[in-house]
Every structure is written in structure tokens, then in C-alpha cells.
Simulated assay, not measured.
Amino acid sequence: MDELDGPTTPSKKAKRLNKYRKEWANTFNWLAKDNQKARCKLFKKSFSFIYGGLGDIKRQAEGSKHKKHEIVLKQNKTLQSFLGREEVMDSQQEKILASEVANVYHTVKHAHSYNSLYCSSQLLAVMYPDSNIATKTRLGRTKASMIAFNVLAPFSVESPLCELSKGVFLEFWNFFGISTDASNHRSAKLFPILLRYYVPSEGVKLFLLDYFEDPDESANGIYTNLKTRIQHAGLLLNYISCYSADNANVDFGRLHSVYQLLYKENNKVLAVGCPAHMVNNSVKNALAKCRFDVETLILKTFNQFSSQAKRCKELKDFFNFVDLEYKTILSHVPTRWLSLFPAIERLLNIFPAIKSYFLSQEETIPIAL
């Protein structure tokens, strides 16, 4: 008997890839689609279901981390619990709610702390006891953070996205430019995504779409994060008008860069370098033609008064003499090129007093000055 006639091992069947089904969200209210993966809304993490399908969804729901987040969510009070149990708020409740939201917005805009907001709300209740709104406004740290994260933050993104979605019917509305740049926050490297678009009635508008963390800072990583978040917002890559970033090879390299990857998706996208760096390079080349070194002038002037209390006292007298409000002299940090312009502007504003001081000290001023 021929060896080839013996029993053969059956070939393995190819695994069938599963697709996301909308009806899953009816059973699991925490489930959402994230491109080719599923996303858990409780602890904001994506996981794959391509091979396991519904089984992967159920395993996710039965996991210890997932159940822990469900318990925490049930224990936390929602924002509505602070506003009363009536289904329809009356005008007085609406005014109290509007007061609380406005106070939180003011706190976030001016980078104040939630502790100061809580203290202010208590102080206003004492100062204005005859005001029903002031006495019933309660803004603790937890409530204020819930309003900021769950009300103001989503609205700041949803509102401009609604304006962009209207551009489907008016094509000159929905084109937008994207900007991003790395920012070190301690050990984390964060990338904010800024979108700039045009509205005929208001002009050019700018808003923060999202931000992501990418420790590798590679072209593929930045491009993938940008593409994922733009598509997740319901926007199309074909409507990107320009890409603006730092003038580095990872962003605008000729062979492989973020711009080249975007250009493959949309060959009409324009490359826009960092405007701040362009201005800095222009000013730097222009200052090279000056007869004196501006940076030396700033640093020498600052050092003249930085640690000399007596000289500062004399300088204040000259401010009074020339009828100017006293302002401290700013220093320039060479590693922070954005600090040069404020230092020059401050020196120009107080130049009459500085000039009068140095003219009275002809024998002791540095030669460079």
C-alpha cells in the first residue's frame, strides 16, 4: 500500500472574523464602536472582538476591572441629583443651574482652583442673603468638576462639530485645518489636536478637539492618532485643508512624515509650518543686522537690578520722576525663545525711567550698556 494512500490530517478552517453589531449596545449600554475595536465607556479602553465576537464582549463585562467600575459608577451621584428630583425644572431652578455653570466656566477660564470656587460660593451666600440664587448655589469640588468634565467640556467640542457638520450642505464650511505639537507634561508627551475652520457669519474659529499621548513620537504613531480621532469625531480626511506642526522631519520630512501620510489620503492638503517658529527665525535674522546684541541688552539690564535692593529703590524714584507706573524688568531665558519678546516690550515701555537712571550713573554702568 502506498504511503500516500494513508489517512491525512484535515486542514484547519480559517477563522471567521466578526463585525460589530449595533444590537450589542442594547444589551451592554457601556459598549461603543471604535474603528475595528469595541470601546468600554466606563474606563475608556478599547479591546478586540474580531475573533471572539459576542464572547469577547461578555468576557469584558465579567472582568474584575469592569465590575469594579460599575460599582463605582453606581455609588457616584449624578449631576441631576444635585438639582432636585423634579422632572421639569422651574425658572428658579434654571437660574440656579445657570449660575453654577457660569461660575464653573469662569473658574476654568481663569485657571482658578475648585477650592476657591467652593469658598466663593459660600461667601456669596453670606454677602447676599436676600438673593435666593446666591444662597442656594452650591459648588463643591466634586460637583464643579462634574460640570466641567461632563457639561462644559463636551459642549466645547460638540458645538463646533455641529457647525462643521452643516458644511455637508454648504461645501465651503466643512473644510478645516489641523494643528498639533508635542508638549511634555512631566514624563508624559501629550499632543493636542486643534481644528481651525471658517464660518461666514463669524469668521475663522479655533477649538481643541482632543489630545493624546504618544511616548514614541513617530510619524506613524502621530498620523494614526490624528486619523483615529478625526474620524471618531465624524469628520472626513478629504476635507482637511492644511496640516500645521513643528518644523521637524517627523512632521514634514520628504520621505516619511506625518504630512506625507496625510498627503496619501488627501493630495490637496497643504503643509503649514509653525508660525511662531517662522516669526522667530525672521526676527533672529533681522536682529543679526543690528549694531548691538538685543539679548545682551536684556540680560545685562535685568542683572543690574535683579539682586540689588538699593538700585531698585533708586529706579523707583526715577519712575516717579518720569511719571510712569513701576514695573519689574523681565529676564530672557535663552532656552525659552518665547520669553524674548515680552522682555523687549517691557523694556520699551519703561525705557524713559531706565534711561534716566543710567544717565545718572555714568561711572558705574556696564560697558555693554
Rank of each mutant, 00 (worst) to 15 (best):
residue 98 A to P: 02
residue 103 N to I: 04
residue 102 A to Y: 07
residue 83 L to K: 05
residue 86 E to Y: 04
residue 82 F to E: 06
residue 106 H to V: 06
residue 96 I to K: 01
residue 99 S to A: 14
residue 93 Q to T: 06
residue 91 S to N: 14
residue 81 S to W: 12
residue 110 H to L: 08
residue 94 E to I: 10
residue 83 L to H: 04
residue 104 V to I: 00
residue 88 V to K: 09
residue 108 V to R: 05
residue 81 S to F: 11
residue 83 L to M: 12
residue 108 V to P: 02
residue 87 E to R: 08
residue 85 R to M: 10
residue 102 A to L: 12
residue 102 A to Q: 10
residue 83 L to R: 02
residue 101 V to S: 04
residue 82 F to S: 08
residue 103 N to D: 02
residue 100 E to D: 10
residue 111 A to S: 15
residue 104 V to H: 03
residue 104 V to M: 02
residue 102 A to S: 14
residue 94 E to T: 09
residue 103 N to P: 00
residue 105 Y to W: 09
residue 81 S to Y: 13
residue 96 I to L: 06
residue 96 I to P: 02
residue 104 V to P: 00
residue 80 Q to T: 13
residue 100 E to W: 03
residue 88 V to G: 02
residue 80 Q to I: 10
residue 90 D to R: 00
residue 78 T to Y: 07
residue 109 K to T: 10
residue 109 K to L: 14
residue 101 V to L: 14
residue 83 L to N: 05
residue 79 L to G: 09
residue 97 L to H: 01
residue 98 A to M: 12
residue 81 S to N: 11
residue 101 V to A: 08
residue 100 E to T: 01
residue 111 A to Y: 07
residue 106 H to A: 12
residue 113 S to A: 05
residue 109 K to C: 04
residue 102 A to F: 10
residue 113 S to E: 06
residue 92 Q to W: 03
residue 82 F to G: 04
residue 106 H to F: 09
residue 107 T to A: 10
residue 93 Q to N: 15
residue 86 E to F: 05
residue 113 S to R: 06
residue 85 R to K: 15
residue 96 I to F: 01
residue 86 E to G: 08
residue 87 E to Q: 07
residue 81 S to K: 14
residue 92 Q to Y: 06
residue 113 S to W: 02
residue 84 G to M: 04
residue 105 Y to M: 12
residue 84 G to I: 01
residue 94 E to Q: 15
residue 113 S to Q: 04
residue 108 V to H: 02
residue 110 H to C: 01
residue 84 G to A: 05
residue 80 Q to H: 09
residue 81 S to D: 11
residue 106 H to Q: 12
residue 111 A to Q: 14
residue 106 H to W: 13
residue 80 Q to E: 14
residue 97 L to F: 03
residue 94 E to N: 14
residue 100 E to N: 06
residue 100 E to A: 08
residue 85 R to V: 08
residue 96 I to V: 11
residue 92 Q to V: 10
residue 102 A to I: 02
residue 96 I to A: 01
residue 96 I to S: 01
residue 105 Y to A: 15
residue 104 V to T: 00
residue 93 Q to D: 13
residue 78 T to Q: 11
residue 80 Q to M: 11
residue 97 L to D: 00
residue 91 S to F: 04
residue 89 M to C: 05
residue 84 G to H: 08
residue 100 E to V: 01
residue 101 V to G: 05
residue 79 L to V: 11
residue 109 K to Y: 08
residue 94 E to R: 12
residue 107 T to G: 05
residue 81 S to H: 13
residue 105 Y to I: 11
residue 82 F to Y: 15
residue 99 S to G: 06
residue 104 V to S: 02
residue 97 L to Y: 00
residue 107 T to Y: 01
residue 78 T to D: 11
residue 105 Y to V: 08
residue 104 V to A: 03
residue 88 V to Y: 08
residue 78 T to V: 09
residue 85 R to H: 13
residue 110 H to Q: 13
residue 92 Q to I: 10
residue 90 D to N: 12
residue 104 V to C: 07
residue 82 F to I: 04
